[in-house]
Write a protein that binds this DNA or RNA. Structure first.
Length: 454
RNA sequence: GGCGACGUGGCCGAGUGGCUGAGGCAGGGGCCUGCAAAGCCCCGUACGCGGGUUCGAUUCCCGCCGUCGCCUCCA
């Protein structure tokens, strides 16, 4: 079974699912108040890869990822743009799924929306209030973090340390709260704001409540893995856990967080304004290049994304696609067991995708050598193993048979073959130039001129 | 201030107490090719700085410098 770094335990631990062979995972999804940027893309890809690999390894996976469709930022944007908050939500949720689809991120098994769970959130908050773990103030209902055993598990800091540190910042709701770290479970609505009824007053849920309710509802107590970007470890995940602990329920068994996308050594974030949206990236580059870029670095490390690193990934993709074209004609075969074992060993070691890829590139070279030497039978199982492993990481190679070449282009290629047969090199070169100018790559093979879209 | 991460060849990015410094990209040379393309082969005197431990440190320890992250907006 795979071993993963657990943020709470601060060490790499075996996943050990609640039910052997079945993995339940919850990954915090986006707040749909704006277009997703590369950071959102990274976590989506990282957990997509983890999910695919777990399934490839023979597990049944239930993958839940939410959409936060009610939040202060959504309200703020709607206000600023003079439209309804539901319009904002609809627009950016569409953008989100479009980007996910374009990147080949599989849709979650469940994609719960916060607004569909408000009643159940109110139930949870009532439970918390009833237990004395939460209390109302004049602007909302707060969780009393001092009532929670082990608060700070994910932050790895005591309450005192946390409070001392945040000193420069304004404490939300200061003065009304019993402890500065207490966080809002429910926010009373101001006039004109969207609201739902509650025993304490109309309002909306705080961010941290939805994920506890939805994860436990869909995956049950003690689900296997809770994931997201590193910046969610604290406070979001800490606060989710706090609520579960306060009502005596088992929460996530493992906490997995991915590192940030960086630009010039700085975290990409909306607040810094140094972000590239996924939509922009996908408009200009092969979506697979970003997946490859993410796979090339370990998921917990920061990842530098620049025009240059994306171009490098695209060049690498060329090599893999060339491999795919070259091996497309090979017979079906059982994937080479040794190659798959090596791949598994790497992936099981805290999702070592860089190491796994390195191993696969070696095999790609080996396959090319064998094919150069005319040893197709020996290459076949190796090629099948590479394909299987890349598939486990969600990296699709371009399917040569999917490329339709127009008849006029094929006619030029045929004319070139005739010229070459007659050793009319001038004509052959002229025809090649013509094909290139039409946007095709021309390759001479034993079977004649082969063209494909550049 | 507290907690934590990082600093590796032109670029990206793994890794390890000593064996040839993974892999990718870029670059140089060669094979192949009519010429190319693709592929294959060869080519790189790295590990922020200063101490320490050790037979031996890039890898462990201490200090320093630099960069970054979290400390209730944040994937």
């Amino acid at each position: 079974m795979i071993r993963l770094y657990d943020t709470a335990a601060r060490q790499v631990l075996p996943l050990e699912p609640r039910t052997p062979g079945e993995v339940s995972m919850y990954v915090c999804g986006p707040t749909v108040y704006g277009p997703p940027h590369l950071g959102h893309g990274r976590f989506s890809l990282v957990f997509d890869v983890l999910r695919r690999y777990l399934e490839w390894s023979g597990n049944r996976v239930r993958y839940v990822s939410n959409i936060t469709d009610i939040d202060d930022k959504i309200i703020d944007r709607a206000e600023a743009e003079g439209r309804s908050w539901t319009e904002v939500v609809t627009e950016f949720e569409t953008v989100w799924w479009d980007a996910m689809d374009a990147m080949g991120v599989r849709r979650p098994d469940d994609d719960p929306h916060a607004t569909a769970y408000v009643e159940r959130m109110v139930d949870l908050i009532s439970d918390l209030v009833g237990r004395g773990a939460a209390y109302p103030t004049d602007d909302g209902v707060y969780l009393s973090v001092e009532q929670v055993d082990g608060y700070g598990l994910l932050a790895h800091q005591s309450l005192d340390e946390m409070v001392a540190g945040g000193g420069e910042r304004e404490v939300h709701g200061a003065g009304r709260k019993r402890h500065p770290a207490d966080f809002a479970l429910w926010k009373f609505a101001k006039p004109g704001e969207p609201s739902w009824p509650s025993p304490w007053g109309d309002g909306r849920p705080g961010w941290h409540t939805e994920c506890v309710v939805m994860s436990l509802d869909l995956l049950g107590d003690g689900f296997d893995l809770h994931g997201g970007g590193l910046d969610l470890a604290f406070p979001h995940h800490e606060n989710e856990r706090a609520q579960a602990v306060a009502v005596g329920r088992d929460f996530a068994r493992r906490w997995v967080h991915n590192g940030f996308v960086e630009v010039g050594g700085e975290k990409m974030s909306k607040s810094l304004g140094n972000f590239t949206t996924l939509t922009e990236l996908l408009a200009e580059h092969d979506a697979r290049a970003y997946r490859l870029l993410v796979l090339r670095a370990h998921y917990r490390r920061p990842l530098e994304v620049t025009a240059d690193t994306i171009a490098q990934a695209e060049a690498t993709l060329e090599r893999l696609d060339a491999f795919a074209r070259r091996t497309a004609e090979l017979d079906e075969a059982e994937p080479d067991a040794a190659v798959l074992d090596a791949f598994r060993t790497r992936m099981d070691d805290d999702l070592d995708t860089p190491g796994a890829l390195a191993g696969l590139f070696d095999v790609v070279s080996e396959v090319n050598r064998l094919l150069d030497a005319g040893a197709a039978p020996a290459a076949t199982p190796l090629a099948a193993a590479v394909r299987s492993a890349l598939d486990a990481m969600g990296l699709d190679l371009r399917d040569p048979s999917a490329e339709l070449v127009p008849d006029d282009v094929l006619a030029l290629a045929a004319a070139r073959d005739r010229a070459r047969a007659e050793k009319d090199w001038g004509m052959a070169d002229q025809l090649r130039d013509e094909l290139v100018s039409k946007g095709y790559v021309v390759e001479d093979t034993p079977g004649g001129t082969v063209v494909r879209r550049a």
